[in-house]
Write a protein that binds this DNA or RNA. Structure first.
Lengths: 338, 338
DNA sequence: CCCATCAAGTTTTACGTATAACGTGCTCCG
DNA sequence: CGGAGCACGTTATACGTAAAACTTGATGGG
């Protein structure tokens, strides 16, 4: 007889079905083969449904010593990129009976401070992107299984890493622009201390160093349309021959670059070719549509979760960076004649 | 003496400090005034820090019968809108010692099926947006405190609701366009069965009905750039006088409308005025910048969480819709002369 | 001087679950 | 016909925490 106000427990179900609480646990946990007869099992299932029984997860977690919950630490949710990473991770997690709790760094893009304080959840593991070393060591000290997304393989304190092959993406961008005939490059770099942006700069510089006669200048901007607008405007007004190709660290910066070009009276792509990186919905919303590097954010999240599952089970995570590929659209063209 | 492999418990701390487990619980729970001496309390705190003790949340949740965790059910994370709702809700939640678990409907925009199956978490309450009635009754049956976002006040089964004043937003749009001189309207409506879209149509029709000489046609599209492009193209090619003002249910649809206009050889805003609704980052990324209705998504999330806190504490949630306001940019202008 | 009060703890219990360990009859084989 | 084994359960216990109920020794007021 249920008391009505509080949620039914397995004991309530047991009483309703005329069996012991242990029998209920066995039947509902699918561990009853050869231990409970089929008719009895059916009685239990009926009673559970009738009472609307759902197991108390806190009790189960305590008993089993695990929570089937993992934390995803992301820099922010200001674009759909990390939302998609979450979606991918959550899908794989759900397939394995796990839930994902999201922790977007309150400071926005940049290092996360204390991912545990506000994540009011007991955790079995952590997937972290762009995290500061101190928070990282805190997690390591907790002995929690950890997977890092897009992080320096050397500096991640031995944690497993899953990376997008950004280096190759930038190389493809450079290759494309060089083939079009560009020689004077401007790099619009995100002013954020993060491995994933560092390697963009390195990859671009490395590829251009292989082709004599090329020049590379760099402008830095915070990741915002207005920041990119200002930085690009300044860079375009600098003395000397104007760059003909503008390589942006991500799509959002490219939007700012479009605006700066327009203000400077330059047409994209006739006077200035622009490239992005991410392939957000933004890329096809603007005119001309943006030539950019497609990052499969959902796959990124999936791979991250899969790697975490591997770590938690003591297996070795899948190796290899996630391939990315250039999507050529209308924002790149041969450079103008002098 | 810690066993090294497993996480320290309050009992380990007790042993290290030479007190009972109860004393540890009292001290660390800040309930020790007049029950434990200051020196002893200090010993406990030191031991806890030394061992790196963090309480087992599963055990705490079981003991206290609450989890300080709530679920946020959203249609999808394909735009930054619900990401911001989450951010706002999570911030308020953190201030009150709550965590927020996200449940993006796997079906994308539209009704959510079973929010509990994959949310591997014990919950104290639910905030739900655009949810199907069946899942809603499931939650109600669970007796969980519930707050609905942007839902029909009549049809929410008595749950508390927090709504944006969309009706007023559309009214402002209509007012603006009418003042510019527009009389022939096209409504690009989201083809999604949801209260929040229904009231857009009603509000627009209601306002135009008040001004004689106006006409209103409606095109329906799924919420995607391509869908909006196709629907708008068809609508613009229809016989009869062409509409001069295109009111879109959200910003994403407006992007598709821009593309359709461009393909039809129409200039925005000279030949066709376009409005959106949301004021996503998208709105200022496109050219011309979009006249739209600014929705404060973070505030929406905050209000939702605050309302849920009120419901959980047996208080009455704050009344009143959240005001929205028109942001006039470059996509609207007086209609062309015949 | 004796009981009430109080500080400073300790002992015990309950939360709901999963499962190891422990009964019961009954069947069936040697 | 005796007991080994099986089918079908039950009883008991542990997970780690919070807090109610209890203990103990000292103090102090009437």
């Amino acid at each position: 007889m249920a008391r009505g106000s509080t949620r039914p427990t397995s004991r309530d179900v047991a009483q309703a079905a005329g069996v012991s609480q242990a029998a209920v646990s066995l039947v509902l946990g699918d561990k009853w083969r050869g231990r409970v007869s089929e008719p009895t099992a059916q009685r239990v299932r009926d009673a559970a449904r009738r009472l609307g029984y759902r197991p108390n997860l806190a009790a189960r977690n305590l008993r089993l010593g695990r929570t089937r919950t993992v934390l995803l630490v992301v820099p922010a949710l200001t674009t759909e990129f990390f939302a998609e990473v979450y979606t991918g991770a959550a899908r794989v997690a759900a397939q394995h009976g796990f839930g994902v709790v999201l922790y977007p760094s309150p400071e926005g893009v940049g290092p996360a401070r204390d991912p545990f304080a506000s994540a009011q959840a007991a955790l079995d593991g952590v997937i972290a992107s762009s995290m500061a070393a101190d928070a990282l060591t805190a997690i390591r000290g907790d002995q929690l299984p950890l997977v890092m997304l897009d992080s320096d393989p050397e500096g991640s304190l031995g944690a497993a890493t899953v990376n997008l092959d950004i280096t190759d993406g930038i190389r493809q961008v450079a290759e494309h622009l060089l083939a079009l005939g560009h020689r004077r490059f401007l790099h619009l770099a995100a002013d954020v201390p993060s491995w994933t942006f560092e390697i963009r700069a390195r990859a671009l510089a490395a590829r251009l160093a292989d082709t004599p006669g090329t020049t590379l200048r760099t402008a830095r901007a915070p990741i915002s349309v207005d920041g990119a607008l200002a930085a690009t405007e300044t860079a375009l007004a600098a003395p000397g021959p104007r760059p003909t190709a503008l390589v942006c660290d991500d799509d959002k910066l490219a939007v700012g670059a479009y605006k700066a070009a327009r203000r400077a009276g330059l047409r994209v792509p006739d006077d200035l070719s622009v490239t992005g990186l991410d392939d957000l919905g933004l890329a096809t919303a603007i005119d001309p549509e943006l030539t950019t590097v497609r990052l499969d954010a959902e796959l990124f999240g999936e791979r991250g979760m899969r790697a975490l599952l591997a770590v938690m089970e003591g297996r070795t995570p899948e190796e290899g960076d996630i391939p990315v590929h250039l999507v050529v659209r209308g924002s790149t063209a041969p450079p103008p004649h002098d």
